[in-house]
Write a protein that binds this DNA or RNA. Structure first.
Length: 428
RNA sequence: GUGAGUGUAGCUCAAUUGGUUAGAGCACUGGACUGUGGCUCCAGGGGUUGAGGGUUCAAGUCCCUUCACUCACCCCA
């Protein structure tokens, strides 16, 4: 093939797509139980929306966004969305959603785009399922989101995940902590790795979760975020932890858990996979972003949310490939042009009555048609050849029992429909 | 953006120190059974050995370039 997909963009082929459907179905069920409503937002937005919300100097903005000039006279810069929160926040403010009802629980799913080097669990077009809650400042909603995710894992049969939580403070207390942390790290500057030296300037909290042992050693002695939280932030975090007590597995407080995007405050969390994901092992992550809506020109309402990576979740599920139980297939085997035309019309009638039906388009031996029926997993095969056409009777073969019965053409439709209904009752 | 690894049939893999016409299993198609599936047996189709160049009497094999993929770093869901 000369025309191939572009790097980091992948096809989801039949066989794998069932896993995605399972994830999406489960997510929709769980969201419904928590009274979330779906929102659908554009894939393309003004570039400014993302630079204002994610932070000008984040890697996502600086080097990972697909940004290009529109064809209008002003050549407006547009970007393929690298994440979902900014767009949802924009829609919430623009649609004046807070006027009618300030508290909104929204979810979305769809493709996101970041031009990174692909690796396991990371593509340039990847898919997220996300949730955003507006107008709730209380810690109960933070906990509710985490319980929702836990329910989703349970619904999907995902095991071995670990929840890490932290509080990174608010606009009042974080600057103080940041200053204390920077002061501490400055004292160890020579011992830090080159990456951390850069982090110190750009996002000092990121030094805390450096993977290098040398840096991790230094960081153990660093000032603790928890001791720098203001009274309100500490109360909020303690309440969240208290509400999560019954969560299995119990969350791990990780004071070194930072966030890459600028808009987060207070509660942050990451849900990590135990095995099967390689180094990109965060399945879902999120946190609180109380000032974001207002900073984008919306009303002063609080926000909390998360996003989960569908590809990563699919990697965790693909091992136990329990495909959804599709309706049993009825296969129509025909021989001769007359029978072909007759079965073609029959197939259409049966499909309109809800049956799953298939048949060949070109003449093949009955043997090969039977082989195909078997391979396709047909529950029953209808056989019509020249003999049946002259007799006005068709053969129905039950593939499991190998029993065949003869049915008048006049009764074929109803017989097949009731056969299917009986099969549904047995399996359902 | 940085580093490492891997490219042979649709898939998983062979091919001796460089040596004839690049093989096998699975899958696919057909037949054994002129109108009946799973098992078995037989046969068949399918390859620019990722691409381009070089060395050599001779390259899947050695060298160079390039492309693709994979993993890790960075970053992040």
């Amino acid at each position: 093939m000369k025309l191939t997909r572009i790097k980091g963009f992948s096809d989801v082929l039949p066989g794998e797509v069932e896993t995605w459907q399972r994830i999406e179905d489960a997510a929709e069920r769980v969201f419904a139980g928590y009274n979330f409503k779906e929102i659908r937002i554009p894939v393309l937005e003004k570039a400014e929306l993302f630079s204002r919300s994610l932070g000008e100097s984040t890697d996502v903005i600086e080097k990972e966004m697909y940004t290009f000039a529109d064809r209008d006279a002003k050549a407006t810069l547009l970007s393929l969305r690298p994440e979902g929160t900014a767009g949802v926040v924009r829609a919430y403010g623009e649609g004046q959603l807070h006027q009618a009802e300030p508290v909104r629980k929204l979810y979305y799913l769809g493709p996101m785009f970041r031009r990174e080097r692909p690796q396991k669990g990371r593509l340039r077009q990847f898919h997220q399922i996300g949730a955003e809650v507006f107008g709730r400042t209380d810690p109960f909603i933070d906990a509710e989101l985490l319980l929702l995710l836990r329910d989703l894992w349970e619904e999907l049969g995902v095991a071995g995940t670990v929840l890490e939580v932290n509080s990174i403070g608010c606009a009042q207390c974080r600057p103080g902590y940041r200053a204390a942390l920077v002061a501490f790290l400055e004292g160890h500057r020579e011992e830090l790795c080159a990456d951390c030296d850069r982090r110190l300037e750009r996002n000092p909290l990121r030094v805390l979760d450096c993977k290098r042992e040398s840096c991790a050693g230094i960081v153990t002695a660093a000032p603790s975020i928890r001791s720098h939280l203001c009274a309100e932030c500490r109360d909020h975090f303690d309440t969240v932890l208290g509400l999560l007590k019954e969560l299995r597995p119990e969350p791990v407080v990780n004071e070194r858990l930072a966030r890459g995007l600028d808009y987060y405050c207070r509660t942050t969390f990451e849900w990590k996979a135990g095995e099967g994901l390689g180094s990109q092992n965060t399945v879902a992550a999120g946190g609180r972003y109380d000032g974001l809506v207002q900073s984008l020109g919306g009303p002063p309402v609080a926000g909390v949310g998360f996003a989960l990576g569908v590809e990563r979740l699919a990697l965790l599920l693909s091992t136990d490939e329990a495909g959804g139980p599709a309706a049993p297939l009825l296969y129509l085997a025909w021989m001769g042009e007359e029978a072909q035309r007759w079965t073609f019309a029959l197939a259409h009638r049966l499909r309109r009555r809800g049956l799953r039906v298939d048949l060949e388009g070109e003449s093949r031996s009955l043997k090969s048609q039977m082989r195909r029926a078997d391979k396709l997993g047909a529950g029953a095969v209808l056989i019509v050849g020249p003999d049946e056409m002259t007799n006005g009777k068709a053969l129905i073969r039950d593939m499991a029992t190998r029993e065949q019965t003869e049915v008048d053409f006049a009764d074929v439709d109803n017989t097949l429909v009731s056969l299917r209904e009986r099969a549904d009752q047995v399996s359902g």
